[in-house]
Design a protein around this nucleic acid. Sequence first.
DNA 1: CTGTTAGCGCGTTCAC
DNA 2: GTGAACGCGCTAACAG
Lengths: 338, 338
Amino acid sequence: MASVTIRDVAKKAGVGVGTVSRVLNRNPAVRETTRRKVLAAIEELEFTPSPIARRLSLGKTMTVAVIAPFFVRPSYVERLRGLDTVFAESEYDFILYNVETTARRDRYFREMARSDRVDGLLIMSLVPTENTVESFMNAGIPTVLVDAVHPRLSHIVIDDHKGGYKATKHLIDLGHRKIGYLSDHMYENPFNFQPVIDRYKGYRQALDEAEIPFHPEYHRQSELSRRAAKKVAREMLTLPDRPTAIFAYSDTQAFGVLRAAEELGIIVPEELSVIGYDDIEISEYLHLTTIRQQLFQSGVEGAKLLLEEIDIQHTEPQEIVLPTELILRKTTAPLVSS
Amino acid sequence: MASVTIRDVAKKAGVGVGTVSRVLNRNPAVRETTRRKVLAAIEELEFTPSPIARRLSLGKTMTVAVIAPFFVRPSYVERLRGLDTVFAESEYDFILYNVETTARRDRYFREMARSDRVDGLLIMSLVPTENTVESFMNAGIPTVLVDAVHPRLSHIVIDDHKGGYKATKHLIDLGHRKIGYLSDHMYENPFNFQPVIDRYKGYRQALDEAEIPFHPEYHRQSELSRRAAKKVAREMLTLPDRPTAIFAYSDTQAFGVLRAAEELGIIVPEELSVIGYDDIEISEYLHLTTIRQQLFQSGVEGAKLLLEEIDIQHTEPQEIVLPTELILRKTTAPLVSS
DNA sequence: CTGTTAGCGCGTTCAC
DNA sequence: GTGAACGCGCTAACAG
């Protein structure tokens, strides 16, 4: 109950509290022998320093906030895992704020903009408004974005433009010209997710370069679920002149496409090529050709960047762009002219 | 920047800090007029009390710790989501401590056993030792277990014994008698995961009741990955007298079994029935018959219980048992005698 | 090198 | 009712 304090340790070791504090903080200016004594006392008393007192004294909270939408989605989980490996090795704890609505997001942004709540902010996939950024800066809170961009904030992003391009180009190289794109919602996109825009642009660019006219019927949108994707894919695949290849915004949606094809008796990849995006774990099992993102790595880099900025204040915003990679499996094949 | 403190407010309002503190804490023993003055000063100075100082003084942190192993596994993610929905509505934040090694676990347990670190502890799947429990109690830290059992701690568990029984019984009811069980590691089980034991017991009990002798060759173990499961399943399926049905400890492992069968040219479910456990999201897509656990709900209940115990100290340990449910899909079928 | 002391910002006694 | 002083446990600055 009565927690053992630094004072008890000092007494037991026959030294002053300052010394105990010094060994606790690895201050080299302590003689080895006394260091030993202190350590022994700590051991014996089972002393653990009170983080709160430490924080008050330091004026630091030793915690960072991670604000992420829909953290249960596989891609976010991977990123979180990346964060975790870095933070776990640091002396910072992280508090996870899950946002599922814009109201929730705005509330969190407001709450975090108080200088002594957290030492740093890691925001995933969400882009704060100008005002919000301003408030973070005023409060002097280092902030880094993962999977989102803001000119005044360090951010680490995946090159989704090129990713979308690669996926589409792969299909084109296979001889396809009727290429569908099953996207996330682009206009009802309350969080303004950037990748939604970028992948689409990549798709368009690849089309343009190959001089394939954009066919609005081939661009459909659905939410990020298999079920919704299946429904929309079905529409696309029952078009009079249906696409011979489909690029899906996410692997999850690609599975919906595959299922729709199966139900319509369309053979993949002979009659329809399908490529996804993400390379989530199950995709390998299902032989899905896809674009792999460095999800885990993006978490790692984001966490590192944040720790760095907490350390050395006032750095220039950095940008790290992670590449994507085409993973060839069995759901895409050359177009056979029928 | 230079945080404005309660003292500044006091000075500005021409009162003592005590008074400011009182209005902050809605202490009624303050004259309305002075209350007004103080409020005005607070407003003007844009004063917000420092949570840290508050914590130190109050001895409450307004945060709870969630200690979970391998939080990236689908089943944990679901549970976390359950926790999140409850905590997000409360005034408590949660700090996630991911443990991947026993050393990490022990460190966290030790650190948390301080009365001023967190207000509550939610431990997933890990069972603390007697000493650890003792230290939590001494520190007066409300603790609840999810997916783990300890007599002196409130816990919420899933009835894995019955779950294992149900799975096996289902296979038996289908006419199978050569029933393999692909388990998680039971002996190299550093975390002493309880479900590992319970499901196995359920398996054995169902066998016993049907008077099917236990066949050690049919009980194999692998880690919780598809790849490992496939390898071990392969061994089981190339036995001279191979099982006609396999119960897998997790859906992930069940997928490994399915893949092994596919590679060996064994048709599911005609020649081999497979049942999993968990009912993770992808299982429906893959038509896997499985045992569904109330993962999300277990998180919700755990969080509620913890909040309750933080509120009303000294409650009797409670136990909540969540049932499982057999989800019939297409990977199990009646035994056809060949 | 090490002991001592003054804060860190707030809540909480006490006297007044 | 209200102000002043003290304590929470620790770090940092300053003597020695």
